[in-house]
Amino acid sequence: MSKKALIIVDYSNDFISDTGKLTCGKSGQAIEGFIVDRIKHYHEAKENIFFMMDLHFENDPTHPESKSFPPHNIIGTEGRNLYGRVGSIFNDIQHDEHVFFIDKRRYDSFFGTPLDTLLRERKVDTLEIVGVCTDICVLHTASTAYNLNYQLIIPKKGVATFNPQGHEWALTHFKNTLGATVE
Rank of each mutant, 00 (worst) to 15 (best):
T113M: 04
I74S: 08
N59M: 02
S2D: 05
S12Q: 13
V124W: 11
F15W: 10
L118P: 00
H98G: 07
T113R: 01
E121S: 06
V36I: 03
V9H: 01
D14E: 03
V138G: 06
F162N: 14
G25K: 07
T19V: 09
H43S: 15
K175G: 00
T126W: 08
T113C: 03
F162V: 10
E65S: 15
G166H: 13
G84I: 08
T77K: 14
N48C: 15
E168F: 12
H167K: 02
F174Q: 01
H173Q: 11
S68P: 08
E183R: 12
F100T: 09
R38G: 02
G84N: 06
L82S: 09
D116V: 01
Y42L: 06
E65Y: 15
T19S: 15
I74D: 02
H72G: 03
G33H: 11
E65V: 10
D92G: 05
Y146P: 03
Q165A: 00
C24P: 07
T134E: 05
L22P: 03
G84P: 13
Y150P: 14
L178G: 07
P155C: 09
S17H: 13
L118Q: 00
I39F: 08
T23C: 06
E183D: 15
N59C: 02
V99P: 07
T19M: 11
I93H: 12
L22Q: 02
G25N: 04
P64C: 00
L119I: 05
E78V: 13
H63F: 13
P164M: 10
V138K: 01
S88V: 13
Y42A: 07
G112D: 00
L6D: 14
H63P: 02
N149H: 12
